[in-house]
């Protein structure tokens, strides 16, 4: 391969989009051509600079987006919901207007005290229009019963060292549906990572949380424990199989901090051959060189 051909391939090489043969030819040329090697370094510097400008949405922004979408989706299906739940809205509203009628409506659980009134439909609490209504029945004596699912908020307060607070945080780190909540609990648990139960939860998050932001946060929390055998096993698994390159990068950086030859050589040789991220391949190569090991044959 000549210089021109090599330079044409450099950007695609950095994206792992070359065929095996193209990549081999490129390596051979780079090894014996200083000019192209320096071009390669420049291309990689640009690539890395571009990595640095990556923005990650703040968890609160995502949470706000979800709330807003929830509201808009409820508005999307409002005509349908209205027809379905209240056959004669006008009549219903009229009955609501009279105090006796209100008393006759045996609300199982209500949220009438909630001040949130949707401007689109005056008089009806927004919550009732979303997903909170569970059933509507009429008793033989004419009384209407509407079942509304109640959600009550309770605030727990305590120090991080408080076992009850910690139990809640551990549960939230594992099970909260909202990744922003999982992220917040992992962030707080970080300060207690020397405790076994906390470290177990962090390891679980590293390997199992569906959200890469949460996995990254948990990896960060485990940084001071990079020599713990359980942590190293998890890091190796992450490096092998996490789908997110940012998470894999964090894992390899932590792993190679400790130069454990017996543990690392095989793993790095395995990863270098199937990893598609160039930074990780580079880091593998570097670490293997530092350990005086070969890149290995495939």
């Amino acid at each position: 391969m000549n210089c021109e051909g090599t330079r044409d391939l450099l950007p695609l090489y950095l994206y792992g989009e070359l065929t095996f043969e193209q990549e081999e030819a490129l390596h051979r040329h780079l090894e014996q051509c200083p000019a192209c090697s320096s071009e390669f370094e420049k291309a990689r510097a640009l690539h890395e600079a571009l990595d640095q400008r990556r923005l990650e949405p703040a968890p609160e922004t995502l949470a706000a987006c979800r709330r807003e979408l929830h509201r808009r989706l409820a508005a999307e299906r409002r005509p349908f919901a209205w027809r379905f739940t209240f056959a004669r809205p006008a009549a219903w509203a009229l009955r609501l207007a009279s105090a006796t009628a209100l008393a006759a409506l045996g609300f199982v659980v209500g949220r009438w005290t909630a001040p949130t009134v949707d401007p689109g439909l005056p008089g009806v609490p927004a919550a009732a229009l979303a997903t909170a209504i569970r059933f509507i029945e009429q008793d033989p004596d004419g009384q209407v019963r509407i079942g509304i699912e109640e959600r009550r908020q309770r605030v727990l307060r305590g120090r991080l060292a408080d076992p009850a607070i910690q139990q809640w945080l551990l549960a939230a780190a594992r099970d909260a549906a909202d990744p922003a909540l999982r992220l917040d609990s992992v962030e707080l648990l970080r300060a207690r990572a020397e405790e076994q139960s906390v470290r177990r939860a962090l390891l679980e998050a590293v390997e199992q949380d569906p959200n890469p932001g949460v996995r990254l946060k948990a990896l960060e929390a485990l940084k001071p424990f990079a020599s713990d055998p359980a942590v190293r096993v998890a890091l190796a698994r992450v490096l092998r199989s996490d789908e997110n390159p940012g998470v894999r990068i964090q894992a390899i950086d932590l792993l190679v901090q400790q130069r454990r030859r017996d543990e690392l050589v095989g793993l790095l040789q395995e990863v270098i051959h199937r990893e598609e991220n160039n930074y990780i391949r580079l880091r593998c190569r570097q670490a293997l060189e530092e350990l005086n090991a070969s890149v290995g044959t495939f």
Binding site: D51, Q52, R53, L55, A58, T61, I249, Y279
Partner: peptide
Amino acid sequence: GEGVPVPLLQ
């Protein structure tokens, strides 16, 4: 932006 830049290459 309030987005947090993530240093991918630490």
